[in-house]
Design a protein around this nucleic acid. Structure first.
Lengths: 200, 200
DNA sequence: ACCTGTCTTGGACAGTCGTCTCAGTCACCT
DNA sequence: AGGTGACTGAGACGACTGTCCAAGACAGGT
């Protein structure tokens, strides 16, 4: 088996372990144990544990990105289109709660580790960028135009998503979360207008 | 020095260490080292490290609670009153960023530790309750009335605060955060109406 | 046949971790 | 004066951590 294949398997194993038991429990031994390898194999494939962590953060962020796009499908109005994307995310959250928790744990770990600090910012830059693209696409598909800086709307959406996630992870109150999301959705949809109604 | 005094000092030390180096770095040895005690003293004052963690979470949440109330002062309109409270929180965040990070780290650690799991929910229940009280007070002070379930408004505000905090912690973009907060403030203020304008 | 580079193995290294034990000290009360 | 109970000190226990090393396996090309 090639080193690249093993890297792949180790990354998978790391995600499995950390999802199940938390990032802190993702020691080199726990990871290699998950796929029946030796500790020395780990350091043959990765220079250090931090190198795996880097790679893991990058991959997970990319996965999130794909998932966000996949969840969106065109609907008559902007509000409905956004609602679809949001429902998609909520479903993802309800199905893999621990995986979202891992993303936060990794982010906080990166914030605390000088060697990984840049990745924490990068992770959020990715969120903003993806969200901007989705918002632009949603507006285009429904013939709408954002009346506020797109970057501000995107940041607002990321902020809302983050908040919804942390609060739900803490108390798992799906009903309350859904109500909050409705309100947030109202607000975001209010930041756009039909493209024919040129109000300025 | 009595055991109670030492408990106090150890809790302080724990907060200092964890604020500086992260919750993961808050080992029993690091904590006692901070105040020049012995490891055995730690376990004389606390049954276990988890017991200290419990106490720490409870205290920090209470501190947050006080800070939130202290920051609010009556202003002519509801929106301005809320703005004051929000500015107060943002100031607190800008001044002690790592302390807010500790709160998240502790919450996530609690979520991962069966023995502490109840505390994670409790922590957020406290947030909701405090926020409800603040919102009710703000409405009363400015002669307003919430047009939406107070519990929903409170959850919305907590969600927004959480989101604002995590995103700012990640990229420290204060300007962008402020803009997002303005929008959120607009939205929340829109959920109340002057008490004389009985629209129903 | 031999060498070379890729991969595999088991083990060692020097730490850190939470917890516990067990002598000791000291102030206080009778 | 003697004892009692709260508190302190040094150290040990076993388990776990990230990283590294040196010896072997095994293919491919010469």
């Amino acid at each position: 088996m090639s080193a690249d294949e093993r890297r792949e398997k180790l990354l998978e194993a790391a995600l499995t372990v950390m999802t199940r038991d938390g990032v802190a429990a993702g020691s080199t031994r726990a990871i290699v144990g998950e796929v029946g390898m030796q500790v020395s194999t780990f350091h043959y494939c990765f220079r250090s544990r931090n190198e795996l962590l880097r790679e893991l953060i990058v991959r997970l962020s990319a996965t999130e990105r794909q998932a966000a796009f996949a969840g969106m499908e065109p609907a008559p109005t902007l509000r409905e289109t956004l609602q679809g994307a949001v429902e998609g995310y909520l479903n993802h959250l309800l199905t893999n709660p621990e995986q979202e928790l891992v993303l936060f744990e990794l982010n906080h770990h990166a914030l605390r580790t000088p060697e990984l600090h840049d990745l924490a910012e990068e992770q959020y830059r990715g969120y903003y960028k993806t969200t901007e693209e989705i918002l632009a696409l949603a507006a285009e598909l429904t013939g709408s135009r954002w009346t506020v800086d797109l970057s501000t709307v995107a940041r607002l959406v990321v902020t809302a998503t983050d908040g919804v996630t942390t609060t739900w992870l803490a108390d798992r109150d799906t009903e309350a979360t859904r109500q909050v999301m409705e309100r947030l959705l109202d607000m975001v949809a209010d930041l756009a207008e039909p493209i024919d109604a040129k109000s300025s």
